[in-house]
Every structure is written in C-alpha cells, then in structure tokens.
C-alpha cells in the first residue's frame, strides 16, 4: 500500500461567461486531468461554473502582506494616483 500523498491543485472557476476565473479552493489529485474531474465533482455539483482551471499548488508563487514593506508602501504614499485627489468645480459631474 502506498502512503504517497497526491499532489495538491488549486481550483479556479469561471462562474459565468464574461467573468474572471476565481479561486474556489484546492484538492488532491493524481494529475491535471484527474484534478479537473475532481474539481467538477467537488466544486461544480450545482452548475456553479462554466469553466475550470486547475494549477499545481507548487506552481503558485505568492507574495505576503508583510513580506516586503516597500512592496505596497508606495501605493499609500502616492495619493495623486487617485481621481479624487483632483478637486474640480462642483459643476463638473462624472469625470
């Protein structure tokens, strides 16, 4: 009997045409094909989606909030990137 754990896959589902695929969870499977089938059985039993992506979890490279301070810090400092920084006369609506 083998004790080898099946590799982990991340599952992304497009709930409706026109929308982005969204991460819904993960599952263990032997390979990509099997992961797709399992994903269908696990996450799409009630027509929750029209398309599935499966990606090996080990292939996901992720950043963390406190990894690098300088990674996000500039965004808070650069308020001029936001439309509301530009005060316009009240007559100008919707710009």
């Amino acid at each position: 009997m083998s004790n080898r754990e099946l590799p982990l896959f991340e599952v992304f589902v497009r709930s409706k045409r026109g929308l982005d695929h969204r991460h819904v969870g993960s599952l263990h499977a032997e390979d990509h094909e099997q992961a797709l089938e399992y994903a269908r059985d696990v996450y799409l039993r009630r027509s929750e989606g029209v398309s599935i992506w499966v990606v090996k979890s080990e292939d996901v490279v992720a950043s963390q909030e406190d990894d690098v301070e300088t990674f996000y810090e500039p965004m808070e400092e650069k308020t001029y990137r936001h439309a509301m920084e530009y005060e316009l006369p009240p007559e100008i609506k919707n710009m």
Binding site: Y80, R81, H82, A83, E85, Y86, E87, L88, P89, I92, M95
Partner: peptide, 13 residues
C-alpha cells in the same frame, strides 16, 4: 482613467 482626465482638466483649469 478617471484620474487621467481629471488631472488633465485641472491643468487646463
């Protein structure tokens, strides 16, 4: 885009 147009209009203003 909203920021783009507003900064431009503000320069003109």
């Amino acid at each position: 885009e909203s920021f783009h147009q507003r900064q431009g209009y503000q320069i003109m203003m």
